[in-house]
Design a protein around this nucleic acid. Structure first.
Lengths: 191, 191
DNA sequence: AAATTCAATGAATAAAAAATTAATGAAAAG
DNA sequence: CTTTTCATTAATTTTTTATTCATTGAATTT
């Protein structure tokens, strides 16, 4: 049998899951608390028993997204370009297996970009700064000669915008298959 | 002097412009009609004198986006890959010169993706189907040998997701320069 | 210059959404 | 077995946001 504590935790997760799905497909502002409660199969009152406000619920999700974004650094790769291949391959595999991954991706991007995001939540989301994190790897690859020439930050941005665009579409519509990681890595690869 | 008719038209444009900017940066749902009126320097009452509802205003913008999306087909290009280069180059140039272009791009994508978009507006937005439009060009390039192998639709999707991701970021933040068109075209280019 | 039109306002109203609360009963603790 | 806790709901209240409306005065027409 399920203890009270377990049940409580499960309920929390159900709410978080429902909210994530709705925030991603409809956006935070367009998602009504009644939608969330309905999708989580409970009354709105109960939802407020678990989270004191819609905003706090959002904040919790963004915090989770921040936690989950521990990128496996320059994991034992001989060349910088191999890191990009590995990274992209792994990311796409995760997204296929765990649709929640692609959703989180989109949630974080939305929170960062959207000016309507409450300031303190935006700040948390902004702590994920993938573009800057990849700049040194690109610089390394340029020295090696495996990554094409160009301002590292602009290259990193191009790569990430592409990943973002792909994740974004995949999160809301899995009809079209994800691309081959190699195609995307070719944005930064030196020929 | 400005005639009444001219003034009326100008006011309409001011509202449309203000709304576009806000819908793009905050999303449709998070944008209040008072925000729109304020940005257009008028009272809410006057705004409703020009547009019968927030939704109709949205619809008008989406219709404009649909009109504006007349892609210059396979404009006199010897190779399919040249079409991609030309297209991307032109698009990026437009975006730099006319920030409204990047915004429209984002508005249409949001309308298509967001489940909260009113059904009839979504239908209008859905008439822009860039992915399908580029499939035959990719197939042509594959025959020629200028475009890499792979399911044309998936390739087209990869290219478009990337363009989308770039436009999306650029629309909301011009701090980071747009990438070189060649980098992006390399997603589909055969080496 | 009188009559009419219409841009414009801001306060009033309606509608929608978020949050609260009192009530209920089942589970856990004593 | 009694008491306490707490998950749960449905109805209600509060807050926010969209929309309407009566009014004003300036521009245009007759």
């Amino acid at each position: 049998m399920e203890t009270r504590k377990e049940q409580k935790e499960r309920r929390r997760q159900e709410i978080l899951c429902a909210a994530l799905e709705l925030f991603v497909t409809k956006g935070y502002a367009a998602t009504k608390v009644t939608d969330i409660a309905e999708r989580a199969n409970m009354s709105t009152g109960l939802m407020f028993h678990y989270f004191e406000s819609k905003e706090k619920l959002y904040e919790e999700l963004i915090r989770m997204g921040l936690e989950g974004t521990a990128y496996p650094a320059e994991q034992k790769c001989e060349h910088a370009i191999d890191f990009f291949v590995q990274f992209t391959t792994q990311l796409f595999e995760y997204m296929k297996k765990q649709p929640i991954m692609a959703r989180m991706f989109l949630l974080m991007a939305q929170a960062q970009r959207n000016e309507a995001t409450p300031a303190h939540i935006r700040e948390i989301a902004m702590q994920v700064n993938t573009i800057e994190e990849f700049v040194p790897i690109i610089a390394w690859g340029q020295q090696e000669g495996t990554i094409r020439d160009g301002e590292p930050k602009i290259l990193s941005n191009a790569f990430w915008c592409c990943i973002q665009g792909i994740a974004e579409r995949y999160a809301t519509n899995q009809e079209i298959d994800l691309p081959q990681p190699e195609w995307i890595v070719d944005i930064v690869r030196k020929k």
